[in-house]
Design a protein around this nucleic acid. Structure first.
Lengths: 230, 230
DNA sequence: CGGCTGGTTGATTTTAGTCAAGTGCAGTGG
DNA sequence: CCACTGCACTTGACTAAAATCAACCAGCCG
């Protein structure tokens, strides 16, 4: 039943990096691994929040279909990120849907096992609180982006945020996630044509670039300018 | 030093309603009460997050001045709401500023006392987790509002949310908080003139009304229509 | 009486959405 | 191999929405 390598893999998930060997062994029995092909749904909004999801590889998109007809991407999650935590904790259904943005493998943890985990092992509740507060900061930032100004400003902020993890190196910074124009549009609450027009201009001006390695920001200073002072 | 009535007042704050008499007594020693006149600042973004704030009466506006020049209201908090929790927990400075939206009295709790409180008394960490998840849901909703569509849709959503607590009664529903047009504009990320034009039209169409008791929604069905299906 | 705040209106410009058409490419099945 | 499909991307013309700029009004308060 238990993949003999499970413990090793699980211990590499940041969320569980600090826990005891005993907790890891217990976790390995509770978690199961699943793989999803690009585009496959992990869960739908409103569905009963039966599981906590932890991304091991690939990328998972969490989004919400709005009454206005649009789709708003709430976040794209990668290695180590937890999904569905809020829903699992408060027991109401998932507040959004999730699908595999690229081929992805995830660990799933049943709701009850998660509660047991929080109760039984020391320090896990604190880790959860820290994680939640961190995510609230991220959400606040995104609220600011969405409410902040024009579409140009909002796209610049998103690209800025995606590049933020990379060290301040010279040369182009490639985005860690493949994003289509439609994805960007869904992230900033705009139409695809608007996004294309803005990005075409940026490309012409040498601000960004695109090749087989993906999308990149060529002029971080100018991008920061757009995201900051307009 | 301790207001003899403190314990009684504190026990009425929902956040502390379930705690033991012992914890209440301890809290009464840690908390101090402050009053702020309308417009006065409680704290500034970036300031060291030294205290947790609990609103007892009045209203406190939490907002952020964006690089784009706008001011985005992140929330307006009333009786029982906690402010600054995220900042206190993760120890980085306040991520936003707060001022008294109306004359307000608040309880302040030093950072260290808050940690002691979480450690010493049973169940408080769980209560915190529940509160955080609840607030993440609220934030997600606001993100959807901001990214969702036009200004009309966004204003409708805000009014809708403010009326949501009131029971589904016939007749006008007055907003629980006095809001100027500018406040609304800062909540939805729009200009004051745009807000005025939309609301003037609504007023003409009998959707909303305004009198000495404040702003009210007269036709909740139509408002829900705007917030839902456009 | 000023000065201040909040609300309001109109004219104009800018921005973004909408509609329609079309390109380039990768994969698929005949 | 080639037609065919689907997908991401692109462009142009046009319309609608919102921002901007500039006044102006009413009430309130010292």
């Amino acid at each position: 039943m238990i993949d003999p390598d499970s413990i090793g893999t699980i211990s590499r998930i940041p969320r569980f990096s600090g826990v005891s060997q005993q907790a890891l062994t217990w976790l390995a029995e509770q978690l199961s691994r699943r793989s999803y092909a690009k585009g496959a749904m992990l869960f739908l909004e409103g569905e009963d929040s039966s599981h906590l999801w932890l991304v091991e590889s690939g990328a998972v998109k969490v989004f919400r279909s709005l009454e206005s007809g649009r789709e708003l991407i709430l976040g794209i999650f990668r290695f180590g990120d937890a999904i569905g935590e809020v829903a699992v904790i408060d027991g109401t259904g998932y507040p959004a849907s999730a699908s595999a943005h690229e081929d992805a493998t995830v660990w799933v943890m049943p709701r009850q096992a998660y509660f047991t985990y929080l109760e039984r092992f020391e320090g896990t509740a604190i880790a959860l609180i820290r994680d939640l507060t961190l995510r609230m900061r991220v959400m606040q930032r995104r609220m600011e982006d969405l409410g902040g100004g024009g579409v140009e400003y909002r796209i610049a902020r998103v690209l800025q945020a995606l590049c933020a993890k990379s060290p301040d190196q010279p040369g182009p910074v490639y985005l860690p996630i493949p994003l289509t124009r439609q994805d960007l549009a869904d992230m900033v609450g705009a139409r695809i044509e608007t996004v294309i027009r803005i990005m075409s201009r940026w490309q012409k001006d040498g601000l960004i670039g695109q090749d087989d390695r993906g999308l990149c920001v060529r002029d971080r200073r100018a991008m920061a300018q757009l995201a900051g002072g307009s």
